[in-house]
Design a protein around this nucleic acid. Structure first.
Lengths: 297, 297
DNA sequence: CACATTCTCTGACATAGATCAGACAATGCA
DNA sequence: TGCATTGTCTGATCTATGTCAGAGAATGTG
């Protein structure tokens, strides 16, 4: 493990010093770093000031002054938003757009400069390795937290979950038709609802009911398209199992639809065995159960 | 190619924002980023102020003030250097060393935090990909420049080259014994000497003689241990060939020692064919020649 | 020895960036 | 309608950083 940690640290050091420093030197073009980033984030279609503030992590004062600076240079126009005149929207002027295009080209040149000294084979390997690092760092940045099932993020995940079931299944899914799933069943002490988030955005969820002296039931496992392939399903499942086991569950159950082949494979590989239907969930095609060995939990 | 460039840009953005920002937030511990870096760079064995300045890219005034700040906090002691009282050496005090250890531990924790959410398999893949990115970004950062054969960097490379030949060969190598290799033969217009540098340090060299209407001769190809495996030999060879061809050479020659198996493979794979000895270089075991197709050059 | 050079330190000044308090207008809500 | 909230802007202040000029000590060189 220490070797891995050392590698991560060496990577971080190299990459922040070399890549970061280069980028900042070449892409500011006489402006301050803050102003350059602001210009970049406004983008071709304009952006609300409050969102720019949030994305760049700026104080309202600083954001306002940066925007006024860009406005004075004729790169940006500020207009009230349609519908809410408190909100201001920053748009790039013609000059601003051409400046944005210059930054885009410089950014391309910089990346090209990284690839240029390498052979075709090395380039291919670098790009592949970068994609892998990016994917896994993204996976690592996903947080999983217990969240109230009526929290906006939870609701949003549930809506996405149902939409997906309906899209996959020929018969429309009716959440009221099957096993009960009231919010209070997914709150402590009877259960839990967890949400996975990536940079503030909810990208997955899962729920578990673990009433005393009954098998725990895992439900509502969902992972957003943009977080597929990050091992998030496995993490959600582990989190829910841990919660249930900590609450005394010794038997875990879940049912799933036949279209969710990836999930079915995961259940089998993590110790679930297919069993006879234990409920009348109309949408389910497979029922799984896993008996927990308390000594290893 | 555009896809590759896009991947590099996406990687750079992710990594500088996510990794860089995290590092800076957690590792400053109430100090300014400059002071934290200074503390880190002084290290356990102390360091000359002028070298700290160079390494951190600081103005002498700023460096002096940062050091005075650390001294006031009891973390650093400044003493004149042995032998030259103008030079000051910064040493960590006991408190400074313990603070350094704290930073080291936090840095470990940060890296551990990156790995923690991942499965064992994902960790292994991340670390492998990071090592690959690191290796290839390092390769990409190597510059190759024409350098006078009597430049200190060139001399240092040549010394290393001779040391290595002597270490590999049972009979000591005598540079005067074989084919002439006077500095002026490696200067324009008769030839060229190129040095590969990584972050200011010379890590490889190569030379070519290309007298008019005679086969060009490639000599003195050397790559430092710390730059092995970066494809640098190939780049040096290409640079020398390009120079020779641009000066009118149509036939390229080189000789090499049998112990340099990697180089021999490279020559064969880039179009060189083994020929009968064309000189009496006593150290050489193989002689190669490549005829240049001017139309593709 | 006279003089140039090297290294460090200090003063002076400018900009970038962070943070707080408060003003002001638009909006939402009871 | 009255009042709280939201979003933006301005003023004030502080720290961090970058840059330049010059002082002063130690050292090297003719």
């Amino acid at each position: 493990m220490q070797e891995m940690i050392t590698q991560v640290r060496r990577f971080n050091r190299l990459v922040t010093r070399r890549v970061g420093a280069l980028d900042e030197r070449y892409l500011t073009r006489g402006r301050s770093l803050g102003a350059a980033r602001m210009l970049w984030e406004i983008g071709a279609r304009g952006e609300e000031v409050r969102r720019l503030r949030a994305r760049l992590g700026l104080d309202s004062g600083r954001a306002s002054r940066l925007l006024r600076g860009l406005e004075a240079d004729g790169l940006v126009e500020l207009r009230p938003a349609d519908g809410d005149a408190r909100v201001r929207v920053a748009h790039l002027t013609a000059r601003g757009r051409s400046e944005h295009a210059v930054l885009d080209r410089l950014s391309d040149d910089l990346a090209r400069g990284t690839l240029a000294p390498l052979s075709a084979r090395q380039r291919q390997r670098l790009v592949t390795a970068m994609a892998e690092v990016e994917r896994l760092l993204t996976a690592s940045a996903v947080t999983i937290e217990t969240t109230d099932p009526e929290h906006p993020d939870a609701r949003q995940c549930l809506r996405a979950y149902l939409d997906e079931l309906n899209a996959r299944s020929p018969t429309p899914y009716d959440p009221a038709a099957g096993v009960s799933a009231e919010p209070h069943e997914f709150r402590a002490p009877l259960g839990a609802f967890v949400v996975a988030r990536l940079g503030g955005e909810a990208v997955g969820c899962g729920a578990v009911k673990h009433p005393p002296r009954r098998p725990a039931e895992i439900k509502r496992m969902w992972v957003s398209d943009r977080a597929r392939g990050l091992g998030l399903g496995r993490r959600l499942l582990e989190t829910l199992e841990t919660t249930a086991i900590a609450s005394g569950a010794t038997r875990l159950r879940l049912e799933t639809n036949r279209t969710l082949t990836e999930a079915i494979g995961r259940y089998r590989s993590t110790g679930y065995e297919e069993v006879a239907p234990f409920n009348h969930e109309p949408f389910a095609d497979h029922w799984f159960e896993k008996v927990v060995d308390r000594s290893t939990a």
